[in-house]
Design a binder for these strands. Structure first.
Length: 226
DNA sequence: GGCTGATCATAA
DNA sequence: TTATGATCAGCC
């Protein structure tokens, strides 16, 4: 594998590349890409995602799709050794200040989830870090029913923010999407409006896909052991 | 055990 | 500083 990878020309090539790295350990991948391994893996939470980005020729961490030409977002999907999704999937930050005027049709959530390449990765504490591998990959777009579900969640959550219900809209809300804190740490705050429209400080939030939801996607793809 | 809230690294 | 990439770790 070349160390500097050009962007893939089309979906088929992207999917081929993703499937070609299936079965490789992250250590092997890092060596091939000449990327140094982090000294303390527990402090390198995004390492695997960024490694896969490089391996597939993604654009990098820019405010645009990973594969801008193709309109495709890349997401790694951490699973345990039984193929159970271990974590939720970050989608994008929530527009807290502009929540009241945010519509689904032009929302970053809809844009990001319109076309996603999911790359399954092993993330099981019972598997030694050096032995964890890249798994299966699949391209996904929401069908009409799923988009309706995402839209309903989005409108409920963003509606809550827009109404200033900043404390009420916690991670327990939403069936597929949820809102969770997203910041350097709990001390980070951003300007928001409370229920009366008065300015208040609030924690930045991000939209995440629940693990239950991505688990169902894996299942639909036939990627789960019975 | 699953889930929520907290936290960590890097790039521009 | 804000965006990207996520996982950690204690609570329920």
């Amino acid at each position: 594998m070349p160390c500097l990878m050009r962007a893939p020309a089309d979906e088929a090539e992207l999917l081929r590349r993703a499937r070609a790295i299936g079965g490789r350990t992250f250590v092997e991948l890092a060596r091939e890409l000449e990327v140094p391994l982090p000294p303390d893996p527990r402090r390198a939470k995004g390492f695997v995602g960024q490694l896969v980005e490089r391996a597939l020729g993604a654009g990098g961490s820019l405010p645009e799709p990973d594969f801008a030409e193709l309109g495709i977002e890349l997401k790694t999907l951490p699973v345990d050794r039984r193929g159970r999704v271990r974590e939720s999937t970050f989608v994008c930050t929530a527009p807290i200040r502009r929540a009241a005027e945010s519509e689904w049709a032009c929302s970053p959530v809809r844009a990001k989830l319109a076309r996603v390449l999911f790359v399954v990765v092993e993330a099981d504490p019972r598997i030694a870090r050096g032995a964890r591998r890249v798994g299966a990959s699949f391209l996904w777009s929401p069908d009409a029913e799923t988009e309706a579900l995402l839209r309903a969640d989005y409108e409920e959550l963003i509606g809550g923010l827009g109404a200033g219900e900043l404390e009420a809209v916690d991670a327990r809300r939403g069936r597929a999407l949820q809102l969770r804190p997203k910041g350097r740490d709990a001390s980070v705050h951003t300007l928001a409006c409370d229920a009366d429209g008065a300015p208040v400080l609030a924690r930045p939030r991000g939209f995440y896909l629940r693990a239950r939801f991505t688990q169902a996607l894996l299942s639909s793809e036939g990627l789960l052991a019975p």
